[in-house]
Design a protein around this nucleic acid. Structure first.
Length: 473
RNA sequence: GCGCCCGUAGCUCAGCAGGAUAGAGCGGCGGCUUCCUAAGCCGCAGGUCGGAGGUUCGAAUCCUCCCGGGCGUACCA
């Protein structure tokens, strides 16, 4: 509604905006909306069954950017990784590693059906063969325990390498085993049962989800008495609530949608606030390379390791590419393009804008022009010479920045920041080619003031995405 | 079958808290360098916004249905 207004923004108002931005400096774009309340972003949470893949890279980049954005909104953000180091998949991993170990000892033991076929277990198997010799000739409970421990340890080391490569770190690591030990899983199950949300069938306990409109009833406790992943996940979220988080954002892949609906329903039945748990669901990453488009699978060993991609393309490129698309849209990562024409990457386009401005300031100092980077000198400049259409657009765009930050956080869409940064970079590059900054007397002072603000916003925007803002390229 | 997501230029995608001639990058073609970094700029070509209805003064944007694609639909995690 409300027809459109064609208000001409008065120049004085624009100059006021610019002065405000310069005064706020690095803090420009930040809010106090979160009031310092605790918010958790849980992401990656990959099981320790292999190194992180390019797919996890999207989650790492996305989750970290969201965490940065919510910090900027004024929340007290905790980055958390949920570690599932128990259960059948880990059992399979241990068994697969044992097979590699036997193979290293010259025995023809195949990796089990549905096991982990990736080559990354081979060198570890060889290492264990050297270390342990023929100590585990058979798959016994002792062997299972030893190989489970060794496998998880090595996988975690690899995952840490991958995270370090992309530059993401976590504040809290929660292990599934901890939840069991504290009796939380059992306790939460009992409450669900008391609420009448559970029934028994075929020796297992099921949740009455269809009564609440969901497509099917899931098992919470198996007939052998062990809780399912879903049951543990529900308990985990109760735990998050008890730890005091006001809001939790889980970054997860599209294959978890049903799980998410079930967890949300369980929390609703348990009486937790509706707006406590949020999911940022993202679609998968497809690698488009010379071999065509490949579907990744850790189990089948068909994947590109995140660290390898980062080593090849650089952290900034990978991070930027991973958050540039809307999370809910499928991401096609064009390897060939990223490799051979990396100079034309949008991330360089934005970084180059930042670098160019840095360069202008270096040149200004060298020439000892009337203006230095001294903040006071800049803000006291007479801005009335800023009347070029690009100068006006830039100020108007800079004015939008805090809203972009807010919207990007609240809609879980860091790509909005990319779009914004590419937009202001474009205006700047065009402006730079047409208008001289230095050697223009009073106009130079005003233009440098504008560029100082632009540089701050470019730097801030990039840092929210976890991308560096270089002074020199 | 059911649930969620996607379908906009040759390719990859923005835009979708309804509003004026639908944008960017890549790819194609043609230009720009006495001077602040050419990792840049300017111009040209290229689109029935998957299709059909509906709501509205106004729809790429909201609603319904259909078509096409992805994911899920486990006593795996």
């Amino acid at each position: 509604m409300g027809g459109f207004l064609n208000l001409r923004t008065r120049p004085e108002a624009l100059y006021g905006i610019l002065r405000e931005i310069l005064a706020e400096g690095e803090r420009y774009g930040e809010w106090t909306l979160g009031e310092g309340k605790p918010l958790q972003v849980e992401f990656v949470s990959s099981n320790p069954t292999g190194p992180l893949t390019v797919g996890h890279g999207r989650q790492a980049a996305l989750g970290d950017a969201l965490a940065n954005l919510f910090s900027a909104l004024g929340w007290d953000v905790t980055r958390e990784y949920y570690l599932n180091d128990e259960g059948r998949q880990i059992e399979l991993l241990a068994r697969s590693l044992w097979a590699r170990y036997r193979q290293a000892l010259g025995e023809d033991v195949p990796v089990p059906e549905g096991g982990y076929h990736g080559g990354y277990l081979v060198p570890i198997g060889e290492e264990l063969a050297r270390e342990w010799g023929d100590r585990f000739p058979e798959w016994t409970p002792e062997a299972a325990e030893a190989f489970r421990k060794a496998a998880v340890e090595r996988m975690m080391a690899m995952i840490h390498e991958d995270l370090e490569a992309i530059g993401v770190s976590f504040d809290v690591w929660t292990r599934e085993g901890d939840l069991h030990r504290r009796g939380l899983v059992r306790e939460v199950f009992e409450v669900l049962k008391e609420k009448g949300a559970v029934y028994e069938k075929d020796g297992a306990y099921w949740m009455r989800s269809t009564e609440y409109g969901l497509p099917r009833d899931p098992v919470l406790i198996r007939s052998d008495g062990t809780p399912t992943y879903l049951m543990v996940d529900i308990a985990y979220h109760v735990d998050k609530y008890r730890r005091g988080f006001v809001r939790v954002v889980d970054v997860q892949g599209a294959d978890h949608v049903e799980e998410q609906q079930q967890v949300k329903l369980a929390l609703r039945i348990l009486g937790y606030p509706e707006d406590f748990l949020h999911y940022c669901v993202h679609q998968f990453v497809t690698l488009k390379g010379k071999e065509g488009i490949e579907r990744m699978s850790t189990r089948k060993g068909k994947f590109l390791r995140l660290k390898d991609l980062v080593d090849e393309l650089g952290r900034d490129v990978v991070r930027y590419f991973m958050v540039r698309r809307r999370p809910e849209a499928h991401l096609i990562f064009d390897l060939e393009l990223a490799r051979k024409t990396s100079m034309e990457n949008p991330v360089y386009y934005v970084q180059y804008a930042h670098t160019r401005i840095a360069s202008i300031f270096r040149e200004a100092e060298k020439r000892e022009e009337s203006v230095t980077r001294d903040a006071l000198g800049v803000t006291e400049a007479d801005l009335s010479s800023l009347s070029d259409p690009d100068e006006i657009s830039l100020i108007k765009e800079l004015d939008r920045f805090p809203d972009v930050v807010r919207r990007a956080a609240e809609t879980y869409g860091p790509h909005l920041v990319c779009e914004y940064l590419e937009g202001i970079s474009g205006i700047f590059h065009s402006y730079y080619n047409r208008v001289r900054i230095l050697g223009q007397g009073e106009a130079t002072r005003a233009r440098l003031a504008l560029l100082a603000a632009l540089k701050t916003v470019l730097g801030k925007g990039l840092s929210l995405l976890g991308v560096s803002a270089p002074e020199v390229m």
